[in-house]
Every structure is written in C-alpha cells, then in structure tokens.
Amino acid sequence: MSFSTRLHREGIGWALPVLVIAGWEAASRAGVMPANVLPAPSAVAEAFWRLTLSGELIRNIGVSTARALAGFAIGGSIGFALGLANGLSRLSRGLTDTTLQMIRNIPHLALIPLVILWFGIDEEAKLFLVALGVFFPIYVNTLLGIQSVDPQLVEMGRVYGMDRRALFFRVILPGALPAIFVGLRYALGIMWLTLIVAETISASSGLGYMAMQAREFLLIDVVVLSILIYALLGKLADSLARLLERLSLGWHPAFQNA
C-alpha cells in the first residue's frame, strides 16, 4: 500500500469528525447553540490552550495514562496467562473456568462502592477496576484463540518432531494471535471506560477528576475538552493496537493488500 493511498484512506476516516466540528462552530456563532449547553469548538480550543499553558492538562493526561497502562498491564497479563493456561491444560480449565465465568458476569463497575470501601480513593482502587475490566476480554479471547487453533496443524507439528516449546511458539501462539488481538482492542476500550468512570467518582487527579472539577465550577468548555481528549486517547490506543496487528499478522489474508 503506497503512502498516498494510505493517507487517502485515513483522510476519509477523519472527514466526518472535521465536518461535525465545522457545523458545530457555525451553529455556535449563529447563536443556535447556547454556550451554556455546548461551547463553540473555538472556546474548547481556548480552554485547551489555557490548560496546556498552566500545565494542568498535561499533568492530568499523564496521571490518567499511567493509571490506564498500569491497570492494563496487570489485568492484561493475568488474563493472558490464565487464557494460555486454560487453553493448554484441561486441568487448569476445569479448576478455574467456572469461577471466572461467574465473576465475568458481574459488571465490574458495580464493584465501585466496594472498591472505595476497600481502597479508599487511592491509586489501588483505580488500578483494581481497570485491571478487572481489562482482564476478561483478554482472558476470553486468548482462551478462544488457543482452542480454535487448527488441530491438524498441531498434529503436523507433532509428526515433524516439534517439542512442546516449539509447538507452542511456532503453531499454537501464532494461531491464537488473531483472536488475542481482538481481545486486546476490546480491552483497550474497556480500559479507558473504566478509568474515566473511576476517576469521575473518586479521584484527586486525572482527566476524570478534571472534568468533575470543571462541572463544579460550570466550566463547560473544560468538560467538553475532557470528553474530546478521551476520544482522542481511545483512538490513539486503537491505532497502536491495529499497527501491532498489521505488523504481526502480515500472513493473514485479511491483512494482505488491505
């Protein structure tokens, strides 16, 4: 794929948001949209500039990103490890899968009151919720990926003398990777969602906290700014995951001449 066609494709994806913002600005200037309902994009941009200069925005984004990634790393690695274990071992699956499926059916955000009682509004509470939210998509898709590896290929690997290690790294893991990436992208969405909710309810820093503070002082431009930043961060995380996907799934027909 050439650079220009890629730019063209990416450009198409951004056309709609740009159009919406232009219409929104026009509506605000014409007075159709009152500023206390939705401030003009230019007012939001101004708030962005103000908060950037004061350093508040960068600090809050940094705090939220660090929380998101730490929670993701913890929940994601546990989910990945358990997914592998349960995909590869019948015993492990028998022992843990029922329990995990029961826990999975509890909406993790319903645990917020309990988590606040346990951890207060410290970092642990946010990490716990993000880790829990991220855990399941990664776990379920890793398990599914391993279970759906073509048994004929596994048999081929055995016949050609692969030991367990080679079989895992050359046959099972690559075969499970497409499903694992689905889990990864799903988990990234849940990561931001959980963090924002947790920060909105109980925090003393971070993007969610910034938005709640702004609400207290009726700074609606800052509230809208926070929401836009969530959208951008979410898109950034998804783009990174897709890049990784393209790099490691080049063999997959879906990623050829795509």
Binding site: Q152, L153, V159, R170, V171, G175, L249, W251, H252
Partner: peptide, 14 residues
Amino acid sequence: TRFMFQEPRLLPWA
C-alpha cells in the same frame, strides 16, 4: 518416517 497429509497443512503464518 515423514508423513504427507491429504491437506497441505502449511503454517499460514510462516
């Protein structure tokens, strides 16, 4: 002894 299967059974990611 090497075995050749009815299907090619090539690793699609290699």
